[in-house]
Write a protein that binds this DNA or RNA. Structure first.
Lengths: 341, 1327
DNA sequence: GAGTTTCCTAGGGACAATATCATTAACAGAGGA
DNA sequence: TTCTCTGTTAATGATATAAGTCCTAGGAAGGCT
């Protein structure tokens, strides 16, 4: 049996979209699925488990299910209007709806560990998990933080990523996609793009035809050749567009704590020559690294031009620095004191 | 009685008066002139209880006076100009001091171009000219003549010289080698050129030196002795007679200064303004008296000291006199010996504790037997302290440096090379490393500025070019203070800022750079005063003691003259730039030695690292520049006494503060402080200046001076106990214990659930927070204790100034009587008074109050103390090892002090004979509510807060608690779960703080937190208790509202007024305010005048901050001169409490003045008033009288009149239904207007139209008035409508029409029947 | 159908700061009229 | 000589940063009496 696929006109009647955006043109969604060629990764459909976070109007879910009929398709949605919509839509279908907030970490513990309602297979780190796929929509600007944390979870191997290298298909605001896909030396190079580089292989699958897409690095557009759909297919449609990312986690053995400290601090001074920037890592940083780094060419580069491998190299030196600062004291507590009588 | 009846009478008079004054003043005159003209009519104005309100409010509302609240465009223009002017001034000043005359001249040219400033331009030119002369650029008299005429005719044609210019010319003429005929001719010409009389020329003591006066008077005989300003005159005459003993008599006869008619031109030299130390005595007489006594002393010194066997050498004669006088007192042997050995070196820094062989002045003073002896002692101590104060204020940095050097040399002598070197040794090394670097930089920037380095001539790298460009910016400021001093300042500032701003082991960069810049500026200012001083007095014969007094007096006069004159402050950006230069140099050179473990080899490694490191940290995604201090240094700092780094401007004073005479003259001697500390609000400053110049706030000065006159000393017994506790390092009462270093929790495994990571982060933040707040409390306590230690046995004073609402605060922030229980416990009055019967009982009451037992009738409180006599004795004699009864008090340290005092008294046969120094406090019952009750005439409220006589004091808090209880019962009965949980938990303590702060406009959130603090003791679950607190806060608010209904009506009225004012538009706004469509920027802040005449301007505006590039990083600082829209929210929320505060401040100042008149020693903490135990009754009756005096007038009515007047013709925006008749008429008018304009009319156009109408209506000509009446504008249409309220709609969509309506303040709530006169018999009003 | 309740959203607040890029304004200099 | 155009630079404005997201007021809607 096939699930009904609602069109934009119908779905736009849902009252609240809670700041999220969805592509509601079935043709576009079909084209995307076509392009992804998920069947190559997920051979065993019957044991394939899909977790759909913030499914919203669920057009994509319906299309997905119709196309692949995975063994288990679970949706996590707690927003009243959407939950209600889903309840009606999929009452008689094999799709499972869980009234839990994907924002809460505890929702996953409940779903997976406590209730055992959705138990994915844990797989080793030498390949992408071929029984578990995660779909999510994080297109609300307010949820950008969550997106970044999910990326961090990939590095930490916790959250759903504890089941191995779980592929994720993420709808995100185009601005976030731009930030994540920044390459060394580009304008949009930032810490989160280094995170992306370190932990994942991320591809731009599709993006709306808004003007921000000029800011994607040309190499990205070239290599990923994304589907560019009309922003009119997005609901609710504003001037800012959304993009779909295909995230394939990588295995890594990075000394995370030190690496975080080093990248975070160096990238504040994106355009300052590395030698100078290194001084901001701690007392006497300049002298120490100058004595350790042989490659003077590297010292002339700026943090914004460094690749993750170079960051890892610097992290290694940092870790062996006898007088390195305490990286866990790296925060401030503003708003105390200041009470001048 | 109905309010409307009593309220209207006053209004008529106000308007009439305004009419009179507005006719009398000219529009374009500078504000101060306008006020002068008003002064003449002031006598008729003082109708209201003799307070200064009327006089002052009229000044600030006079037509010519409009400092800030003008139309947006003109405000922006004038403010940008005044900002430019400020910047130019500070640059000009800097250039002059560093002798860049060329650049200075070009700055002058820029200043000249600033139109509105033209009026004052001559002052700037004079400054330039004086510097030109002083630095010897004028080769001859003719040379300068040429320059002057050339400058004034060609460069600055619109500028005219004034008398000061002439005095500079004269000074220049007198500089020439010999004083011959041509000099005389020139001088005569100058004198003839006077604008306001010769006397006016001669009055410039800041230009003319004593020697100048001598020549003018003695040799050339071109001026009369009576023309010379008082303080200087005596000096000049004495000097002449010293030089020419033969003619001394002759001159002497001429000199008696009886001429009192010379006040016309120069107010400052008015003889009635007697110098600080000689209050009340005519100067000339005083001088005579002193000459006599000191001369005889001089002789006596010789004879007496011959006998003294082992006197320590004292070099100056003055100090010999001091010591001599001390020895002449009736002292015991031990004291004599101490004095004999004491150095009496004023230069010895008070803070150099280890080197100070201390002498307990207080102990000596207390042991004196007669009043006469005490008076003599006080006088001599004052003159010694005068010198010490000067040394303290001026030599702080040198003293620090000397100490470092000393320690360094000592260490070197010992051959000490251990890694843990003493801090001072390090500092000395840094200093020595930094100095050459700085000198080089000073030289470089000097070269850049003098144009020697051209970017084009030499091949410079991009960076050097950039650096040179920056040098052009900060260079001038770098030349002002000796490099040596700047180095010391930088080091001290950075150490002082350790662990501030929430940074764990360091500080915020932004704060650091500004602090350093500011400290350098401060140094420059006081140095500048000193330099000028020595320059002008260099020829004065200082050898004899007799002269010292005159010199001192003349200098002090000169100083306040100079302080008043200074108008420049360095722009924040300049401070930051200078600071960053200094800091980056220090970062470069300051190193610490380290040892650590190599993570790879696991070997011990040694190294060296910069002591400071610049980096960044994130907070919520925003970056924060931080300056980290190396951990090894932090550990050392914890153990050090950092007292030396406290700026002297932050310490109590050893002598009586300079009296407040003027809005920027008072307090410290070598540092300027302003009457009101309104952080960068030029708006309020402008108002303040105007009323101050018109002498409309003399009561304020008087009150403040009384506060400043109170002499204090440290309670040695309490200090010793505290010191013992402190040194144990354990936590005790509110002093946290020593904590080594911050231990954070280890991170959880990486693959733990994200929620675990989150928990870990939160916990660590909490730990860090706790750590640093403990650290800062301990550090602050350390400051207090160390300052107290330095001032042990000393007599000292707290100079006060006001916050923007008029509340008084001591200028010295660390240690003062406003501080916590600990500071208060340490302070006692210098002066002692016999307890007497009343005093003894009050002391007991005081103790009872300190225990929190303060709401019982006095008898019960007395018996409370009496029933604990044994505990008191135990606490006093065995504070740390006894039963520790005092520890149970609400305010333990003060309780301990009182226990000791009582115990001492009871040791006497008759305790009433005890001489007590302990301040006894009298606190109002929720002082804010007292004022509200008086304002609203609210009988029930008045009863609750003891305005109405009663035999038992009322306890508001218990009462509110009861009401809340009742509400909870009711709610619980309805099945409210939260109410059920809470109903038996409501105590007085739970609601107390909320009730108290409710008056002061505490927000819902704030109240919730307060209550949560109390509930957290009962409930463990933080979340749950927070929830309950929220619920309870609502009930407490409601209960207070119910109980003080009248107060809340007033409060709401005040808030609504503020709301409307801050959302109103002046008629002369322009389009710029309308830049975002129909949402104009509102510019009017709430302004009112306190009963004492102090104008208050609420400073809440939307701050605009900008990034400023400095050497280290950019810093984000706000520009105080930018014109910003008001922050309506804060204006509204702030006004009710601020208004009440301005009233309690007025009450305090009035009481202070009254108590001062009665000879009481008086101190106050806002609404807690202190005096000697024996004087409490006297003070109490004063407090009541002054409260009555304050509230006799209907203050609310008067406030409304003031508002109506000040905000007359303002309009506000309303929304009405588009379909109404009114709306249609308005649309009609608008379309007509559009047609006339040939474009769509905007709100701005409408306002312009309305402005024209109001101008016509207010015009003098009847014809114009008639025209105005005929005019139909969108506003005039609204005026005809009476049911506007009904038409208003809240809709924001198309159905609503935005219209302008005249701003109208709400009607005053009706006043109740309470008569404030009843207060006179209420003895629990303050208790 | 009026009023109450509930739920959403905006919007205020503390991106209570800083590096860097983009855009605009100002300015100087050259070249043409 | 004066004026206009163009290239350069200074000044100003905008945006991203990290990564658990605070709360409450106000308004619309929806479901109830």
């Amino acid at each position: 049996m096939s699930l009904a696929v609602r069109d934009l006109k119908t779905l736009s009647k849902i009252k609240h979209y809670y700041g999220f955006k969805y592509v509601l043109n079935p043709a576009v969604n079909e084209a995307i699925l076509e392009k992804l060629q998920l069947e190559k990764t997920y051979g065993n459909r019957a044991r394939w488990k899909v977790l759909d976070l913030y499914p919203g109007p669920s057009q994509q879910a319906a299309l997905f299910y119709n196309r692949y009929k995975p063994g288990q398709y679970a949706m996590m949605e707690s927003r009243p209007d959407f939950f209600q919509h889903l309840s009606q839509e999929f009452a008689e279908s094999p799709l499972e709806i869980y009234n839990k907030d994907p924002y809460e970490w505890s929702s996953y513990v409940d779903l997976i560990d406590r209730s055992q309602a959705f138990v994915p297979e844990k797989q080793s780190l030498d390949h992408i998990n071929d029984k578990f796929l995660c779909l999510a929509n994080l297109t609300s600007t307010g949820h950008e933080g969550l997106l970044m944390q999910w990326y961090a979870c990939i590095g930490n191997r916790n959250w759903i990523q504890r089941f191995g290298r779980v592929k994720m298909l993420l709808w995100v605001p185009t601005t976030a996609a731009i930030k994540l896909l920044g390459v060394p030396g580009s304008l949009s190079r930032s810490k989160c793009s280094v995170v992306r580089e370190a932990f994942t292989e991320t591809k731009l699958v599709a993006t709306s035809d808004t003007k921000e897409i000029k800011q994607f690095d040309s190499s990205v557009m070239h290599a990923n050749n994304p589907i560019i759909f009309s922003n009119k297919d997005v609901w609710p449609s504003r001037e800012k567009g959304i993009s779909l990312l295909e995230v394939d986690p990588k295995a890594h053995d990075i000394d995370l704590d030190n690496w975080e400290y080093v990248t975070k601090h160096l990238l504040i001074l994106k355009k300052t020559p590395l030698l100078e920037a290194l001084d901001s890592l701690g007392h006497g940083g300049k002298d120490y690294f100058k004595s350790k780094i042989e490659d003077k060419e590297l010292l002339r580069k700026t943090p914004g031009e460094l690749t993750n491998d170079e960051f890892i190299y610097i992290t290694g030196l940092f870790a062996n620095w006898p007088f390195k600062p305490d990286i866990y004291m790296d925060f401030v507590d503003i708003y105390q004191e200041e009470s001048i009588m | 009685m109905l309010r409307s009846f009593s309220r209207s009478a006053c209004r008529v008079t106000a308007i009439q008066r305004r009419f009179i004054t507005s006719k009398g003043s000219k529009l374009l005159k500078p504000a101060s002139d306008t006020h002068m003209s008003m002064e003449s009519s002031q006598n008729s104005l003082g109708a209201h209880g003799g307070l200064d309100f009327m006089k002052s409010s009229q000044i600030s509302m006079s037509p010519g006076f409009d400092p800030y609240d003008m139309s947006h465009a003109s405000a922006v223009k004038s403010m940008t100009q005044s900002r430019d002017v400020m910047q130019l001034w500070s640059l000009l000043e800097a250039c002059l001091y560093s002798k860049y005359m060329k650049r200075a001249f070009s700055i002058l040219q820029s200043l000249y171009l600033v139109g509105p400033h033209r009026h004052y331009f001559i002052d700037d030119y004079n400054m330039y000219l004086a510097s030109y002369v002083e630095n010897g650029f004028a080769k001859s008299i003719a040379d300068l003549d040429r320059k002057l005429s050339d400058d004034l005719q060609n460069s600055f044609p619109a500028c005219e010289y004034n008398d000061k210019t002439l005095s500079i010319m004269i000074h220049n003429a007198l500089r020439s080698e010999e004083v011959n005929d041509s000099v005389l001719r020139s001088i005569n010409t100058y004198l003839k050129m006077n604008m306001k009389g010769i006397k006016s020329i001669i009055s410039h003591v800041d230009v003319l030196t004593v020697r100048d006066y001598e020549i003018l008077l003695g040799e050339l005989k071109v001026i009369k002795s009576s023309d010379i300003p008082d303080a200087t005159r005596v000096l000049v005459e004495k000097n002449i007679s010293a030089r020419q003993p033969a003619s001394a008599d002759e001159e002497g006869q001429e000199s008696p200064v009886l001429n009192r008619t010379n006040t016309l031109n120069d107010k400052r030299s008015a003889p009635s303004r007697v110098e600080d130390l000689t209050k009340g005595i005519e100067p000339a007489k005083m001088a005579e008296l002193e000459v006599e006594s000191s001369i005889s002393l001089d002789e006596a010194v010789q004879s007496l000291e011959k006998d003294a066997a082992k006197l320590t050498a004292v070099d100056t004669l003055g100090m010999r006199v001091v010591r001599h006088t001390l020895l002449g007192l009736d002292l015991n042997e031990k004291q004599r010996e101490k004095i004999a050995q004491f150095h009496f070196k004023a230069e010895e820094n008070l803070l150099n504790l280890d080197q100070k062989s201390s002498i307990d002045f207080f102990e000596i003073y207390r042991s004196l037997k007669s009043d006469a002896e005490r008076a003599k002692f006080d006088e001599i101590l004052e003159s010694f302290n005068q010198e010490r104060q000067k040394a303290l204020e001026n030599r702080a940095t040198d003293a620090a440096k000397e100490r470092w050097k000393h320690d360094f040399e000592e260490a070197r002598a010992r051959g000490d090379i251990s890694i843990e070197k003493r801090l001072n040794v390090k500092l000395w090394k840094w200093y020595n490393a930094m100095l050459p670097l700085l000198k080089e930089e000073v030289k470089n920037s000097a070269e850049v500025m003098s144009g020697k380095v051209k970017n084009s001539t030499k091949r410079l790298s991009q960076e050097e070019i950039k650096q040179n460009r920056a040098r052009l910016d900060y260079g001038p400021y770098l030349q002002l203070v000796e490099p040596e001093k700047m180095c010391v300042i930088t080091i001290l500032e950075l150490l002082k800022l350790n662990s501030t701003g929430g940074v764990i082991e360091g500080m915020r960069t932004a704060r650091a750079v500004i602090s350093v810049g500011k400290a350098i500026e401060m140094e420059f200012r006081s140095e500048q005063l000193l330099k000028n001083e020595s320059q002008l007095f260099k020829d004065v014969n200082k050898k004899s003691h007799e002269f010292k007094k005159y010199v001192q007096r003349a200098k002090s006069k000169f100083r306040s003259y100079k302080i008043e004159e200074s108008k420049v402050v360095w722009p924040q950006a300049a401070r930051a730039k200078i600071g960053s230069i200094m800091i980056s140099m220090l970062i470069h050179v300051a190193k610490v030695d380290l040892e650590g473990i190599d993570p790879v080899t696991k070997q011990k490694v040694y190294g060296e690292a910069p002591a400071f490191s610049h980096g960044y940290q994130y907070h919520n995604g925003s970056k924060l520049g931080v300056l980290k201090i190396h951990r090894s240094l932090i550990q050392q700092l914890n153990g050090e006494r950092l007292i030396a780094s406290v700026q002297p401007q932050l310490l109590p004073m050893l002598v009586k503060p300079r009296d407040w005479k003027n809005w920027k003259s008072g307090g410290y001697y070598y540092n300027q402080s302003s009457l009101i500390r309104s952080k960068d609000s030029p708006e309020q400053m402008a108002y303040l200046k105007a009323v101050s110049d018109a002498n409309a706030i003399d009561t304020v000065y008087k009150g403040l001076n009384v506060l400043g006159e109170t002499a204090w000393t440290v309670n040695r017994k309490v200090f010793n106990i505290m010191s013992e506790v402190w040194n144990s390092g354990k936590d005790f009462l509110d002093i946290p214990g020593i904590q080594e270093k911050l231990e954070l929790l280890p991170p959880p495994p990486r693959d733990a659930d994200p929620s675990v990571h989150r928990e870990w982060k939160l916990k660590n933040k909490e730990l860090a927070n706790k750590f640093s707040s403990n650290r800062s409390i301990r550090c602050d306590s350390n400051y207090k204790l160390e300052i107290a230690r330095a001032f042990l046995g000393e007599k000292f004073y707290f100079p006060h100034n006001l916050d923007f609402r008029g509340r008084a605060y001591p200028l010295s922030p660390h240690f003062n009587h406003l501080g916590n229980d600990m500071s208060r416990g340490l302070l006692i009055f210098w002066k002692g008074k016999r307890l007497g019967p009343q005093g003894l009982t009050w002391l007991k009451v005081h103790l009872s109050n300190l225990f929190g037992f303060d709401k019982a009738p006095l008898v019960e409180r007395i018996s409370f103390a009496e029933s604990h006599l044994e505990d008191i004795r135990d606490s006093a004699e065995n504070p740390l090892n006894g039963k520790g009864w005092w520890l149970k008090a609400d305010k333990p340290w003060q309780a301990l002090a009182t226990c000791i005092e009582l115990n001492e008294a009871y040791k006497l046969e008759n305790p009433e004979d005890f001489i007590s120094h302990q301040p006894v406090h009298q606190d109002g019952t929720c002082n804010g509510l007292q004022h509200y009750a008086a304002l609203g005439g609210d009988i029930e409220g008045a009863t609750q807060v003891n305005l109405i006589p009663n035999d038992r004091p009322q306890d508001v808090y218990s009462h509110v608690a009861k009401l809340v209880q009742a509400r909870l019962e009711a709610a619980a009965a309805k099945g409210d779960e939260q109410a059920k949980v809470l109903r038996d938990k409501i105590t007085r303590k739970v609601v107390k703080q909320t009730v108290m702060t409710n008056v002061y406009g505490v927000t819902y959130v704030g109240a919730t937190l307060q209550i949560e603090k109390q509930l957290s003791n009962i409930f463990d679950d933080r979340k749950y208790s927070l929830e309950l607190s929220k619920y309870l806060a609502k009930h407490v608010f409601a209960a207070v509202r119910e109980l003080f209904h009248g107060a809340h009506l007033i409060q709401d009225w005040l808030a609504e007024c503020a709301n409307r004012i801050s959302k109103s538009i002046r008629l002369d706004v322009d389009e710029k305010s309308f830049k975002n469509g129909n949402k104009p920027d509102f510019m009017s802040s709430v302004i009112w005048t306190t009963p004492l005449g102090l104008p208050i301007v609420q400073p809440y505006r939307e701050a605009t901050k900008k990034q400023v590039t400095t050497n280290l990083q950019t810093v984000f600082i706000s520009d105080p001169f930018s014109v910003n829209p008001v922050n309506a929210r804060r204006q509204k929320a702030g006004f009710p409490p601020n208004f009440i505060h301005s009233l309690d401040a007025s009450h305090m100042l009035l009481s202070a003045a009254a108590c001062g008149d009665q000879g009481l020693t008086f101190a106050s903490v806002h609404d807690s008033y202190w005096t000697h135990a024996c004087d409490v009754d006297l003070m109490n009756s004063s407090l009541r009288e002054q409260f009555i005096k304050l509230h006799e007038v209907d203050l609310i009515e008067r406030l409304k009149n003031e508002f109506d007047e000040r905000y007359k013709n303002y309009v506000q925006i309303a929304r009405i239904d588009r379909r109404s008749v009114l709306a249609r008429r308005i649309i009609d008018i608008r379309s007509k207007l559009s047609k006339e304009l040939g474009r769509p009319a905007t709100l701005a156009d409408e306002i312009y139209m309305e402005k024209k109408r109001s101008q016509l209506l207010e015009s003098q000509s009847l014809e114009d008035q008639e025209k105005g009446k005929q005019m139909v504008t969108t506003v005039s249409v609204v005026e005809t409508i009476s049911n506007l309220k009904e038409l208003e709609t809240k809709k924001t969509d198309g159905s609503a029409l935005m219209i302008l309506v005249p701003m109208k303040l709400p009607e005053i709530p009706p006043k109740g029947n309470f008569d404030v006169q009843d207060l006179r018999n209420s003895r629990y009003f303050f208790s």
